[in-house]
């Protein structure tokens, strides 16, 4: 068996400043990995490098492609990388505005990835869009409404539908529940967990919310100052943190 993603010695610098450095890990099919750390710890930089939105200065991001097996996405051609971005990868942004076309209807938003890979039958695109809206609990009669008329939670769910419609294998999530009410967060987390299980997705979730990773992630990486200071099973890292920074992080969480 091959890992879906194999990251080796990844580094990104902003001039003399370190974005992230010396990051190595692998991710296996069906695994959800959380990345936590405070603002500026490099977790978002790392995510951008993994998703191909940012070119790392050093290191490899080897993805197990469907047709060619493991390929370094850092050195692969841009068309190929962008094709991955539309098919096998998905990116759920913290702000729905970054991940949705606000002026395009919900159905059009979901259908875009299908059309991008060649779907040319309106009826079938619409059927698939309806199916996906249902799966993310958006009423069918909202299919022609634009996301700007949706609540924050609905926008986030629409973003998920739009991303998962092409059946990706790896989902990058940047603070997927950030900015949502707690009750809406819970519903979204449940939805994500169900989808991850049903579709056998692998996911990398960047967040600063330890409760989110505990419920969503199998594994956890803790970042500080651009480096991974601790990694392991989520519950093990949270319940028996080894590194001083992780201990501080865990002990800083407010108990309800």
């Amino acid at each position: 068996m091959t890992p879906l993603l194999d990251v080796r010695g990844l580094e990104k610098r902003y001039g003399a400043r370190i974005g992230c450095t010396d990051v190595s890990f692998d991710l296996w099919p069906g695994e959800v990995m959380g990345i936590v750390g405070e603002s500026g710890s490099g977790k978002s930089t790392l995510l951008s490098c993994l998703a191909g939105d940012l070119a790392p200065d050093r290191g490899e991001v080897i993805f197990d492609t469907r047709d060619r097996g493991p390929v370094d996405t850092v050195t692969m051609s841009e068309p190929e990388r962008r094709m991955l971005g539309r098919t096998d990868w998905a990116f759920v942004h913290q702000t729905p505005r970054d991940g949705l076309r606000m002026g395009v209807s919900a159905g059009g938003n979901v259908g875009e990835r299908l059309m991008a890979v060649g779907a040319r039958h309106y009826g079938e695109i619409r059927t698939q869009a309806l199916d996906w809206l249902g799966r993310v609990e958006i009423a069918a009669d909202r299919i022609d409404d634009r996301p700007r008329d949706f609540s924050g939670g609905m926008q986030q769910r629409l973003q998920i539908a739009r991303n998962l419609v092409t059946g990706p294998r790896l989902v990058f999530m940047d603070e997927p529940t950030g900015g949502l009410d707690v009750s809406v967060q819970a519903r979204l987390l449940d939805l994500l967990r169900g989808l991850v299980r049903e579709m056998g997705l692998s996911a990398i979730v960047v967040t600063h919310d330890l409760a989110v990773v505990r419920l969503l992630a199998d594994r956890l990486m803790v970042m500080q100052g651009g480096r991974v200071v601790e990694a392991g099973l989520t519950d093990q890292v949270l319940d028996d943190p080894q590194h001083g920074y992780t201990q501080l992080l865990v002990s800083s969480v407010l108990q309800v």
Partner: peptide, 9 residues
């Protein structure tokens, strides 16, 4: 793909 989104809309 985006061109077809326009027609879809």
């Amino acid at each position: 793909g985006l061109m077809h989104v326009k027609l879809y809309e």
